[in-house]
Computed example of a mutant assay.
Amino acid sequence: MRLAELTWPEVPRGATVLVPVGALEQHGPHLPLDTDAVVAEAVAARAAALAPHDVVLAPVVAFGASGEHQSFAGTTSIGTEALRVVLVELVRSLRTWAGRVVLVNGHGGNLDAVRAAVAQLVAEQHDVAWVPCAVAGADLHAGRTETSLLLHLAPASVRLDRAEPGALGSAAELLPRLRAGGTAAVSANGVLGDPTGASAAEGAQLLDAMAARVLAVLAPVETGAAR
């Protein structure tokens, strides 16, 4: 159930709330700026639909920490500290009626904010966790992984005729340069990977795999196992 569509008496007290956390940033010449938000919301929605107990889907946090992409037009970032504060205040508010909150993060640049927010909230004794929208073997940014996901979730938004490879190095090779000089320092087109071969069918499989990670975090709630 979607929180935004409920009236207040319909909100199930004590339910688990999934909060998708996205970003608005460049994703190469072929993917839309809201790619991370679209993916995070879809992963959370899929998990909420499959969960056997009450799970409420909150609206997506659409702006994230995207300073590494600021050289590209359209990127809109609130930064790590602002995002941390937003997440802390959101969870504090949700927890006045929700039993548990799980952040579903769709953007790697949000990691410092998400981790810091969760650590603070756990110290305040809130029942909160977070899950990344990630799978083994995924490329870094706007490559085959995200292109496949968008071909499945929002095919009309993909400019497939503009898809082209970007920086093809490994994370170990690219990330130090990216942290020092931003994405533009390692990739002129903003792509970290190769979208060649992306497909909607692969995107559907990726979505299921990412949703399964969220369900695994939800599982202790219904089994009574320790977190």
Rank of each mutant, 00 (worst) to 15 (best):
L6F: 03
R144H: 10
L149D: 03
A42P: 04
A15F: 14
A185D: 05
A40G: 09
A48T: 08
T80F: 06
T35R: 05
A49F: 05
A119L: 11
L18R: 10
H27E: 10
S157L: 15
P12L: 00
A204V: 02
C133L: 06
L153K: 02
L215E: 08
S170E: 07
D127W: 04
R177F: 10
G190E: 04
R179S: 14
A62L: 07
A123W: 11
H126N: 13
G224K: 03
V91N: 07
T196K: 02
L168P: 05
V186S: 13
T80S: 13
D139T: 00
T76M: 14
A212T: 06
L150Y: 07
T76K: 05
V101E: 09
D208Q: 12
L111F: 15
A154I: 00
A201D: 14
A23S: 15
V60L: 00
L24P: 04
G137M: 04
H107I: 04
A62F: 07
T80G: 03
V186T: 13
L160M: 14
G190Q: 00
V39M: 06
A134C: 12
G137N: 10
G169N: 05
L50Q: 15
H53N: 08
A184Q: 13
V101A: 01
S170P: 05
T75I: 02
G197R: 07
V91W: 01
R115I: 15
A42H: 04
L6S: 02
T96S: 14
V38G: 00
L57M: 10
V88Y: 04
A216C: 07
T80Y: 00
V191P: 04
R162E: 13
M1P: 05
L33I: 07
P155S: 06
V19D: 06
A226S: 14
L151H: 09
R92A: 01
S157T: 15
D112L: 14
V88R: 14
L103F: 13
L3N: 03
L6C: 09
T7F: 06
R95P: 03
D127S: 14
V85N: 04
M1S: 11
A48K: 00
L149H: 07
A156L: 11
A48I: 05
L153M: 09
E89I: 07
T35M: 10
E10L: 03
A211Y: 05
Q26Y: 01
L207P: 04
D194E: 06
A180D: 12
D139N: 06
V56K: 06
P132N: 14
N110P: 09
A167C: 14
A49N: 06
V17E: 02
A138F: 08
V214Q: 12
A136T: 13
V135Y: 02
V158S: 08
P155M: 03
L90C: 01
E5W: 06
L153V: 13
A51D: 01
L160S: 13
A201K: 11
V60G: 00
R95Y: 09
H126I: 02
A123G: 13
E124H: 11
N105G: 07
V91Y: 04
P176A: 03
G166F: 11
A73P: 15
A116W: 10
